Amino acid sequence: MSTIDVDVRNTIHDLLCRFFLAFDEKDWVAMRATLADEVFIDYASSGREQPGAMTGDEFVGRRRGAVDELSKQHSFSNLLLSATDSGVHGRCNYLILRFATASNGAADSYHSCGSYEFVFQPVDASWRISSITQKALRSWGNRDLHGGSRN
């Protein structure tokens, strides 16, 4: 693994900020702009989607369908990046707070924490997310609020 240029590091950090903020603001156009045309996903550790590839549009459609009715706040920390032959690999911790839009108690929330692993690839003159693996540590609250969760 080789070192990563500071400009690339800053660009990828900004890309992740835009990706997570797009969830919170329900800005699906902005989310799509952060993704490669094909994205590998693995949400199996949280009991959700099994590993597989899909288009960036499909990814956005699935996320929108699973969480569009919730108020959310995504946070990430401890971002580590490393250059690989296939692009840039990243790992970060996450905390996701989710609340029912008409919240009236603790049963109207569903939160989770863990880590993500990403692969970023250059596309044209920018970077895009081409792989997302979630490694869930813990979730708590009303799981039924999250449309992407398995019952």
Results as ranks from 00 to 15, higher is better:
residue 129 I to Y: 10
residue 89 H to W: 12
residue 72 K to C: 14
residue 75 S to H: 15
residue 40 F to Q: 08
residue 38 E to H: 03
residue 72 K to N: 09
residue 76 F to A: 13
residue 132 I to V: 05
residue 136 A to P: 04
residue 137 L to K: 00
residue 47 G to C: 10
residue 119 V to W: 08
residue 83 A to S: 15
residue 111 H to S: 14
residue 105 G to F: 00
residue 18 R to Y: 12
residue 64 R to Y: 13
residue 129 I to R: 00
residue 96 I to H: 04
residue 137 L to Y: 02
residue 97 L to I: 03
residue 49 E to I: 11
residue 129 I to F: 08
residue 8 V to I: 15
residue 16 L to C: 14
residue 48 R to W: 13
residue 148 G to Y: 08
residue 66 A to H: 06
residue 10 N to G: 07
residue 61 G to T: 07
residue 112 S to G: 15
residue 72 K to F: 11
residue 88 V to L: 09
residue 119 V to D: 10
residue 31 M to V: 08
residue 23 F to W: 10
residue 95 L to E: 11
residue 46 S to Y: 12
residue 33 A to Y: 09
residue 85 D to L: 04
residue 120 F to V: 12
residue 44 A to D: 11
residue 135 K to E: 01
residue 122 P to T: 04
residue 73 Q to I: 02
residue 18 R to F: 12
residue 38 E to S: 03
residue 108 D to H: 06
residue 86 S to C: 10
residue 93 N to D: 04
residue 125 A to C: 08
residue 49 E to C: 07
residue 121 Q to L: 09
residue 2 S to V: 06
residue 80 L to N: 13
residue 33 A to T: 05
residue 57 D to L: 11
residue 3 T to W: 02
residue 105 G to P: 05
residue 54 M to E: 13
residue 126 S to N: 03
residue 52 G to A: 05
residue 23 F to R: 09
residue 37 D to V: 07
residue 129 I to S: 00
residue 145 L to R: 01
residue 41 I to H: 01
residue 15 L to G: 14
residue 96 I to N: 14
residue 59 F to I: 09
